[in-house]
């Protein structure tokens, strides 16, 4: 049974879900990790679309360097989106 299409559907769904979470999470550190996850899933999709060059670049840049640069910026500014002190969300305490 050839089930490449279901894998495609699952990856696209996971990618959109990570994008929504990356925009909605109020903890910026978690949002950076969500952004890196979007890049990683997009890199898998690039590979399925027969673009191995782009997939390699996206995996090296999007998942490692881009997330790292955002995390450095968060380290030098503030972690939460608003000024009030907030606790880490349920996804960490779970």
């Amino acid at each position: 049974m050839n089930c490449i299409p279901c894998a495609e559907y699952i990856i696209v769904a996971l990618m959109i879900g990570s994008a929504i979470l990356a925009v909605e999470w109020r903890d910026l550190l978690a949002a950076a990790v969500g952004m890196a996850a979007v890049s990683l899933f997009a890199s898998i999709l690039f590979f399925l679309l027969q673009a191995p060059d782009v997939a390699m670049t996206e995996a090296a840049i999007g998942a490692a360097l881009s997330g790292a640069v955002v995390i450095f910026a968060i380290k030098r500014t503030q972690r939460f989106e608003t000024e009030e002190e907030e606790r880490p969300g349920w996804w960490i305490r779970w």
Partner: peptide, 18 residues
């Protein structure tokens, strides 16, 4: 938040590339 706006712009960029 400025950083959140930049993260959103990065997501837009990934979408355009895809």
């Amino acid at each position: 938040n400025l950083l959140k706006i930049l993260i959103s712009l990065s997501i837009v960029e990934t979408g355009v590339n895809l």
